[in-house]
């Protein structure tokens, strides 16, 4: 869905996305990082289960909810990535205790 402009050659850090190790740009938010590795849909809708994509990138639409370091329903567009972060896309509702 998105590609990086050629001018951008910033440092990268390693995170885990859906269990896979990925190198992403330091300075990206979690949501931008997910887009940059080609993941378009980061969660499914609560009621129907259909795939959704982040819509606003500024923290008002709540379509960017993902699991970060084991805690679910976090707005990925507001969280800067950190080395070693574990990110998981959310399919269906969150589980209690995760």
């Amino acid at each position: 869905m998105f590609r990086r402009l050629p001018d951008v050659d910033d440092a990268t850090i390693e995170v885990t996305i859906d269990g896979r190790a990925e190198r992403v740009r330091a300075g990206d938010t979690v949501t931008a990082a997910l887009f940059s590795v080609g993941i378009e849909s980061h969660r499914t809708a609560d009621v129907s289960g259909t795939p959704r994509t982040p819509y606003c990138m500024m923290g008002v639409c709540f379509e960017c909810l993902v699991v970060i370091d084991g805690v679910g329903n976090r707005q990925g567009c507001l969280v800067p990535i950190r080395p070693g972060m574990r990110i998981e896309t959310q399919r269906g509702k969150r589980e209690v205790g995760r």
Partner: peptide, 24 residues
């Protein structure tokens, strides 16, 4: 409007400004 692949213009600007990301 809820389909993946649909976002706001503001979202596009944010991805451009913050991350240098543009659509395929």
């Amino acid at each position: 409007w809820t389909l993946p692949g649909v976002m706001t213009v503001g979202a596009a600007q944010i991805l451009l400004k913050s991350s240098g990301l543009v659509p395929h």
